[in-house]
């Protein structure tokens, strides 16, 4: 049975550093590019770290800014000050 968690973001300038950060912090993630959007799948769990996004962006980044770029997702959400994580209970 598939346990893939997934996040879909807009394919635009705001989302690009987030996508890059996800690729960096989740080396096993698969990035699917569609017109206008990017869908990232990962087995079991996927994390977005504030620190990584901030490094790439060169400014402070509130994890909740994710709300401006997200299109869809699959998985249980854990949102904290310094990360956003999706997971299925294994």
């Amino acid at each position: 049975m598939s346990r893939v968690v997934s996040i879909t973001l807009q394919n635009n300038d705001d989302a690009r550093p987030i996508i890059e950060a996800i690729e960096k912090d989740n080396p096993e993630a698969t990035v699917n590019i569609y017109p206008g959007m990017v869908k990232i799948d990962c087995e079991g769990r996927l994390i977005i770290k504030q620190e990584t996004v901030e490094e790439l962006l060169g400014r402070e980044w509130d994890v909740q800014e994710l709300h401006l770029s997200i299109i869809s997702m699959g998985g249980n959400v854990d949102e904290e000050d310094d990360y956003f994580e999706l997971s299925w209970n294994l």
Partner: peptide, 9 residues
């Protein structure tokens, strides 16, 4: 795929 993971959960 997505629904499968959800219902497994």
């Amino acid at each position: 795929e997505a629904g499968g993971a959800l219902f497994a959960d």
